[in-house]
């Protein structure tokens, strides 16, 4: 059973504000998490977890300098910018 307080904590970790939808979300996530308990029917003690479904080992490349995105291109989509920078609210008070 997931509580409203747990949902609030998870929302805060996710940087999401919940308003009136918190009731509905709590109920829905509780149903979903309850369904996931189905996995506990299986004994997985000696089973290795999947980390890469297709195994290739490490992928290396040469350490060469290549062209990257131009500054104006990289800043093009920024909602707020100043000179060569993304603009954010003051952090150091």
């Amino acid at each position: 059973m997931i509580s409203k307080d747990e949902i609030k904590k998870v929302a805060s970790l996710s940087r999401i504000l919940l308003k009136e939808e918190i009731e509905e979300f709590t109920e829905q996530l509780d149903t979903i998490l309850d369904y996931m308990n189905k996995l506990n029917e299986l004994n997985t003690e000696d089973i290795d977890p999947v980390f890469h479904i297709v195994e290739f080992g490490n992928v290396f490349r040469n350490d060469e300098i290549k062209a990257s995105l131009a500054l104006d291109e990289a800043l093009k989509n920024a909602p707020q910018k100043e000179g060569a920078f993304f603009k954010v609210p003051r952090i150091i008070k």
Binding site: I2, E6, I7, V10, A11, L13, S14, I16, L18, E21, F25, Q28, L29, I32, L33, M36, L39, N40, L42, T44, I47, D48, P49, V50, F51, I53
Partner: peptide, 28 residues
């Protein structure tokens, strides 16, 4: 939002083994 909350929950401290690690084993 629901999926971000769900994903954050199953990865959060104390739940990682019960959900995420378990799921990766069932994936095997």
């Amino acid at each position: 939002k629901r999926r971000i909350l769900l994903g954050t929950y199953v990865l959060s401290s104390g739940y990682y083994d019960a959900y995420y690690l378990k799921a990766q084993k069932v994936r095997t």
